[in-house]
Amino acid sequence: MRASASTFAQGVDFSLYVIVGISVFFLIGITIVMLYFVFRYNKKRNPVATNIEGSHKLEVIWTAIPTLLVMVMFYFGWMGYKPLRKAPDGALEVKAYGQMWKFSFEYPDGRITDSLVVPLGKPVKVNLVSRDVLHSFFIPAFRMKEDMVPGKDNFLWFEATEKGRFDILCAEYCGQLHSYMLSSVTVVEDAQYEQWLASTAGTSNEHPGLALLKQNACLTCHSQDGSKIIGPSFKGVFGKTEIVVTDGVEREIVIDEAYISRSIKQPNADVVKGYMKGLMVSYEAVLTDEQIASITDYIKTLQ
């Protein structure tokens, strides 16, 4: 198994060893007894069977022992799990967004990133938000996952015990590119973390519209180079004549500012022929009109 790299992982691994240990012992024991009986009481060696109806004493024993053992297993499972639901006060809080098919993170200072950077040995609380369907935020090295449920707040917290870069995977099936919904968490020394926080959030000379497209995971479905992913490519789309399906009826439109804005706010009103309805969510509450204008501006440049 992978490195165990959080305080929680130790509890999980311990209960895993307890349960698997007991299980393997019984699995092997029972299998050996069973095979021995088949050998020892084979009709060649034991031509006449003895009828034994049962035994109250044995029934009691093999009810009591499993009862005891499963309660032991339950107990360790519960103890290992309990810390997960109580984040310590003063934990660093980060918001994690899941949307088809990208994680993004929002730090308290407002910076938005594609992957997590956290300090070693400090509790971090991750508030989980889904923008569309179910996702699940899974860090195998930390042995934890929790679902991102649209319309419902959920969270998890951890304290990393090892430096390094660990995978974040989506564990709840969320559609076509579920298996590509990946990110990572990088655990660094406190000082390094402070340094990272202080660094100005990369004021690149990127087009602000492109930055918005990246932040909102638009590019997981819409390419910039003309290839078809899930939705139509942005390349050359502005000013293009398209056949769209509106309420089940096909019609021809020319793509202009108003059409782009409507596609962002009510993506299912008109669907370009040949694409699936229902996969894109409305960004009406996420993007302002200025931001949409900036995106449109950028799309115009992709000719």
């Binding site: 509890g11 999980v12 209960s15 895993l16 349960i19 698997v20 299980s23 393997v24 019984f26 699995l27 029972i30 299998t31 069973m34 095979l35 088949v38 499963v70 297993m73 339950f74 360790f76 499972g77 519960w78 103890m79 290992g80 799990y81 997960l84 699940s136 899974f138 195998p140 042995r143 934890m144 996952k145 929790e146 564990a171 709840e172 099936y173």
Partner: peptide, 29 residues
């Protein structure tokens, strides 16, 4: 006999999934 053996593996792995701590890691894997 194969049933008993395999069903036991199914049952024991079920216990691993029924315990809270381990299920948090193994759920949906």
């Amino acid at each position: 006999l194969a049933f008993i053996f395999q069903f036991m593996i199914g049952g024991f792995t079920g216990l691993v999934l029924g315990a809270l701590a381990t299920d948090i890691h193994l759920h949906d894997t």
